[in-house]
Amino acid sequence: MNFRKILALITIILLGIFILQAFLIIPEKGEIALNNFGKADIENRTAQLYIDKSVNSTNEQVIYKESKDKESGSANIVTSIVANYRALDTLGEVTVLFLAATGLSAILYNKKHAKSNFILKEDSFILKNGIKILFPLLILAGSYIIIYGHLSPGGSFQGGAVIATAFLLKLLSSKEYELDENILKIIEVTAGVSFVSIGLYGLYAEGSFLTNFLETGTIANLFSGGIVPIIYITIGLKVAVELTNIINDLMKA
């Protein structure tokens, strides 16, 4: 028990009491209660508007495979928030991801271009041949998760992470395998530019940035949701390429 541990204990006990008393406050009228788990008041939250898809229009029922031309046609409500209602947040998030990947490249920049000298002394037979089978399946699974992101759980972030994991396994499996960084850069720049230009076209056509300017179609069809699937595919490419780039940089450091 030295001085540092005593100080740490005092700090976390004080912080714990501080957080706990925020949970114990009994709310007055109009305030949000933190102490009742499982009784979130969805009716009076903004979430109800997103669930009804009635932020700008009147409240009608949304019915599976029947409702047409709703504001945001995607059946997965989380997707319609990420890629349509709050797409500006997602643009900022993708910018943070881009800055982190660029910063990592700048920190680890190495003139000698050292080869990937990771863990394996010599190529392992099982790893090498297993990954030959697994790699296309992982790419397929990642693409499915991205493309069906507006209908089922999943989406660009999850699918992008699966694709990046496939490239991680490929880099682990053999020493000779090298990613072409120019192609990665081209894919990343194209995806980012098309995301922003979809938003700018919405500004031109409908008067606000990242508006849904396409027909939204019947809910729960594959081709529905207007710009939501297109934006999700661009974000998916961007996330996949940036996570792959991060892993590649760390391995070659």
């Binding site: 997965n76 759980p153 999943g154 989406g155 999850q158 992470a161 699966v162 991680l168 996570l243």
Partner: peptide
């Protein structure tokens, strides 16, 4: 959605990094 993201990113990629 969040469960899939946490399983793919938190468990897989961060451990690898």
């Amino acid at each position: 959605d969040v469960a899939m993201a946490e399983a793919a990113i938190g468990t897989g990629l961060s451990t690898a990094i």
